[in-house]
Design a protein around this nucleic acid. Sequence first.
DNA 1: GTAACTACTTCACTTAGTGAAGTAAATTTC
DNA 2: GAAATTTACTTCACTAAGTGAAGTAGTTAC
Lengths: 115, 115
Amino acid sequence: MPPALPLDADCRPDCPIAAAGEVLSGKWTTLIFRDLFGGTRRYSQLQASLAGISPRILADRLRMLEERGLVHRRVIPSVPPKTEYSLTDWGRRIEPVLVALAGFGQMVQGIGARA
Amino acid sequence: MPPALPLDADCRPDCPIAAAGEVLSGKWTTLIFRDLFGGTRRYSQLQASLAGISPRILADRLRMLEERGLVHRRVIPSVPPKTEYSLTDWGRRIEPVLVALAGFGQMVQGIGARA
DNA sequence: GTAACTACTTCACTTAGTGAAGTAAATTTC
DNA sequence: GAAATTTACTTCACTAAGTGAAGTAGTTAC
């Protein structure tokens, strides 16, 4: 039985895996999705959770994801103003990727433990 | 019903998603897996398929994946010698990630078409 | 008036990736 | 027998991406 989606090299030039890779480019994007999958988060919460991320990169990634319609940004007019980020309906469709990555990552951790 | 694998921010410090991200780091790694998922490939075949990859990066990634036990490297003692790369049993377990990425990528392409 | 708070931006620096060129060794071509 | 070919890389100079410390803006608490 062939796979449900084309995984072979012939999926170019409009390869969906490459398209996903463009959205998930950079070290931090999947981890931002992971955190937002847990619910709405503020900028400072994301920065604390993503230990080591540069504020510039966090702002860049959030802006990119918002432009693509995967993340919603909401400014709360308090003092000082706060910003909330959450996944859109489109963004929530990253879930199967995160689940698959978590499964693969657990396997990789298992290899590392025995190596 | 909670997700089968921990997707929330509390999955640190040994977050399996972050572990997967380390293996799949860089622009090209998932595309190398995609190509090798289609079967054994030679270095020159991968270089042709991954249009634009630098030979240094291709060699680096293949070496990293071999060291992690996800890719098998076989030198054929012909003249000039050829090198074949294939997925190991561990490496083949990337399949669910590729399938999920392909599904997400198709959705992203769909968004792009209407934006 | 000084400090604190939040969400950033700016800037100098390091790391990752690019792409053209070079290497090695045998083998076919002239 | 000298030159060109083939494959899998390596080297090197350059550009892009990411880091991390510091700064900014506007308001309120002291």
